[in-house]
Design a protein around this nucleic acid. Structure first.
Lengths: 214, 214
DNA sequence: GTTTCATATGAATACTGTTTCATATTATAT
DNA sequence: ATATAATATGAAACAGTATTCATATGAAAC
């Protein structure tokens, strides 16, 4: 947490500092990001920086935590049990929303892109992002099985890990390409098809649709 | 490429240097790996280091390239067209072999683990590891479709990317856990099931097995 | 024994990095 | 107007980093 001094600052100055920091952390992973450059860009003295923040990580943590908080606030309503959507539809909703969020905040998205590639950072307790996300997927999978949307013999531990990583990869895939109209969601659909049915060609199949499928 | 001086060295010394370097690059990603520590551990003078290698990257490149060369030599026979194995069986063979390789060379495996997380390093021409691997998956997919093992409407570009990332993730998953007997291959089977059929529960299905399926 | 060549050495160089600290400035309260 | 507290400042300290270079050592050649 930044020091009180930082929060006492006039908003304009505070915003300028945060913006400079976001730019820096978007351009470079944490370790390569330079306090010196953040200072230069935001036009404050190096001494001041340490009046506002304990150290580089303090600022980094503040920025990323804020972003994840916002993300969680936006995604939480989508998994509410009352919505009565199938596992895969919920998954799609979550994806649509988090892609929208990413497009609205490309800087923050770039920052968390770096974060996801940094093992050491990922496992620092305060975040526990990886384990939080895994827990989240685990619960979704359990519900999916209860609802009859998923095979009931899947390895939850393994599958939650795979979905977590798959999600990050698809995100990267989309972010690295320019966005044409509706293109993002086409990719998401492809991923969900992949998750749901795989890529294997079955024999010639006659399917008797399960009645209570949502 | 290391300088000639390096290759003129007595084998024992050469091996000691390489071992120290491997330990360093296994413990730290490239940028954090320290030439000073490699020097200390291998007991050579800092000046000598630069008699042997152009710079830190020269040594790093030498180590990683050697590893990938070996890997390729071991995997290449498995994709020979004469083997007449299905797409998924080939995939499994490749996985089994590269896991064996990883278990035999944990240090080298750790090094390439770091490498896969480093975007900048991954895209340096000399490697082009990512694009090489993607090309490899692309060809496998095309053949899988020709053989009738895969759905014919898959997006090859997207799917090869996904398989590449999925492979790396599963590798990580396995490497992070202690190896019980046959446990590795159980995980690989799970991944292949996931790839082939997905996790979605179909309706009650009657399958008419396709006769020319291998 | 002397010359020649390859190799070995570690102090010195030339950074870039974060963080501290004593001091100056400004704002607030009395 | 004075005292007190909060904030601003940039030089300096400190801890690294990779790399260079002049010199020393050792081995082989003549």
């Amino acid at each position: 947490m930044p020091k009180e001094t930082f929060f006492n600052l006039p908003e304009k100055k505070r915003r300028r500092i945060i913006k400079s920091a976001e730019e820096e952390f978007a351009a470079y992973p944490f370790r390569q990001a330079s306090v010196a450059r953040i200072i230069k860009r935001s036009g404050i003295a190096s001494g001041s920086f340490y009046q506002y923040f304990r150290d580089k990580f303090d600022l980094y943590e503040y920025i990323t935590e804020s972003f994840f908080d916002m993300k969680l606030r936006r995604l939480a309503p989508l998994i509410s049990a009352e919505r009565d959507r199938s596992f895969f539809d919920t998954f799609k909703d979550l994806y649509a929303e988090s892609l929208k969020l990413a497009r609205e905040n490309p800087r923050l998205e770039a920052i968390s892109g770096h974060l996801y590639r940094d093992k050491e950072l990922l496992s620092r307790q305060l975040y526990g992002i990886e384990s939080r996300a895994l827990g989240f997927y685990r619960e979704m999978l359990k519900r999916g099985i209860r609802q009859g949307d998923l095979k009931k013999d899947i390895d939850i531990e393994f599958t939650s890990y795979i979905l977590f990583k798959l999600g990050a990869s698809v995100n990267e895939y989309i972010m690295e390409r320019t966005s044409l109209k509706n293109w993002d969601m086409k990719i998401v659909d492809r991923m969900i098809d992949f998750m749901e049915d795989g890529i294997g060609k079955k024999g010639d199949i006659i399917t008797v649709v399960n009645k209570n499928r949502r």
